[in-house]
Design a binder for these strands. Sequence first.
DNA 1: GTCTATATTTGGATAGAC
DNA 2: GTCTATCCAAATATAGAC
Lengths: 203, 203
Amino acid sequence: MKGKITREYIVESADRLFYQRGYEHTSFSDIADFVQISKGNFYYHFKSKDEILAAVIQLRLENTRNMLAKWEADGERPEDRIMSFIDMLIANLADIKMYGCPVGTLCTELAKLNHASRAEANELLFLFRSWLSRQFVSLGLEAKADELAMHLLARSQGVATLAQAFQDEGYEGFIKHEVEQMHAWLSCTASAAQSAQEAGAGR
Amino acid sequence: MKGKITREYIVESADRLFYQRGYEHTSFSDIADFVQISKGNFYYHFKSKDEILAAVIQLRLENTRNMLAKWEADGERPEDRIMSFIDMLIANLADIKMYGCPVGTLCTELAKLNHASRAEANELLFLFRSWLSRQFVSLGLEAKADELAMHLLARSQGVATLAQAFQDEGYEGFIKHEVEQMHAWLSCTASAAQSAQEAGAGR
DNA sequence: GTCTATATTTGGATAGAC
DNA sequence: GTCTATCCAAATATAGAC
């Protein structure tokens, strides 16, 4: 069962390295060095670099699904659940400043490479989009749910991009400020939805 | 003076290729093939790949400065000028769907590569930021000008990222819808600034 | 200024011993 | 399952002829 462990360790390391350095800029040797195995052994576990990328994306998909399920279980109201999404920017502040959003930067890179795994990477984004969309539906905003989901997703992507580019040249507290604004936007959207529903019920 | 022309042609071609395929993923041969010169000749004009990237960034900086100056000259009110920025998303719709934002994607890539020219690429983003900031100052929003500039910049970056990732899977008219919302946000911000100023003047 | 030819290095990938 | 040794292709870069 040693193989299982090594394989997992490779995937986790590659995940981290791809995030920090980018997929193309991370070589087999980089991963092998990090995991401290020989390149030959590496190929016992993965036949190609594409294959390891596919494994990394599968791992991320799984982790993301678990995270979304947890948010779903933990958040009482839909607003609370959406808040979990927004607050990711704060929870991962340090990493985002250094390496951007792991999902967005991967999708951007694979798009330029025209890589075979591009669609799977986009599925990561889509997971967030459809999850957010469902939350907005729960808020009673069926008609605009997907629009609102895309809007919020776009804003968090934009914040991550600028946070990484400017790092500490961004005005102090840029991310926190944007997060606060997203909170405000969400409260506004949620309460508007509620009064619309009450008005509908009162008719 | 043939050299001047060739050099310029190389830089323009590299600019385009770096945008479409990414910097690291574009090889010398790719550029040489595109320009239809030999690799040997290539090195007469540029000693290294880093050097050509630097030239490409300088070209983009120059083009950006010219564009901003034109917007400045053409737009009557500050709102109109800011609108020019927002409408870039529409003007470059097709390219953005295919390749994302040329500035954002370059900054993201160079950040991961930890590339020497990273700071110069960021300067491109900074050009937009400080220009937008000045427009908000003209609107009478000195105190919040940089915040508002960063906010708008982030939103346009986010829209570009999602537009590229989802391409036609995004709901129909995603970019246009977001642009409309940015217009609305801008009108709202501008008129609030105006009434604040009038209230101040009326005191 | 432009070419062909070639050197150098790196990264992806394989063979075969242990 | 892991290693060493090696191959191959691609990419950066140089030398020298025209």
